[in-house]
Amino acid sequence: MWNSFRTDDHLGISAEITTYQAGNGDETHAYVVRPHTDAPAPGIVLVHHMPGWDEFTQELAERLGRHGYLVICPDLYCRYGHGAPDDVAAKVRADGGVHDDSVVADAEAAAQWLRQDPRCNGKVGIIGPCSGGRHALLVASRVGGFDAVVDLWGGNVIMADDQLSPARPVAPIDYTADLDAPLLGIFGNDDQSPTPAQVDQHQAELERLGKTFEFHRYDGAGHGFFYYHTPMYRQEQAMDAWEKVFAFFEEHLKS
């Protein structure tokens, strides 16, 4: 839980940009946060959102790290060049978006990187906001072997045929049968993508296939309500949802 540490706890993190062998064997950047824990820590793959591998993402990684998780956040846009995050994201946008297959390969490699780290307890979760939420679900469904997956308001889990593109050829909901990890979904009821009706549809498919999941939906919140750097931030809903995230990871990665 947030702000529940003891003041005499041995706390601390180290965080840095490093490189790892991502999909296709490419050496790409990742932001890695290591908690200073005595025992091996659970691992989390953090999937950044469409606006890029940015400062919010790094701070999100640090927050998870401070709660005792070894976090790796791959730069999914690394192959597009380097500059300010919004400049890189603009190039990705102009190119039609990063390919789902590329994200899946990079995240799978990140999970393997965690499992091979001697400071990891062998359990690995995956989380992402916005497009990262969609990608987290997609990765967990296509790769398998994750111990927990958290989808923060990922849109386009359900896609009409005319929304499919070369970069996103299959809707994640079509992989639901393959999902083998418990899923936590966090959604704002004012969101336009996913809409509450789409969340209903996703929930129905998970129920139909007997999947383990919990969805939490918040009134008075729309898309991106964790984003404290934007007007979309909703303090009350965000803090409650963060408690849900921490409890979920605690249950599935630390027990």
């Binding site: 500059g83 919004d86 994201a89």
Partner: peptide, 30 residues
Amino acid sequence: TVGYDHATHSGTEHALLLDFTNYELGVDAR
């Protein structure tokens, strides 16, 4: 490139995004 997607600086969820670029010079030639 003309887009309509997440804004990074305008303080709104979405914005009309206009980018004039030359990616032969790098991603920051924008």
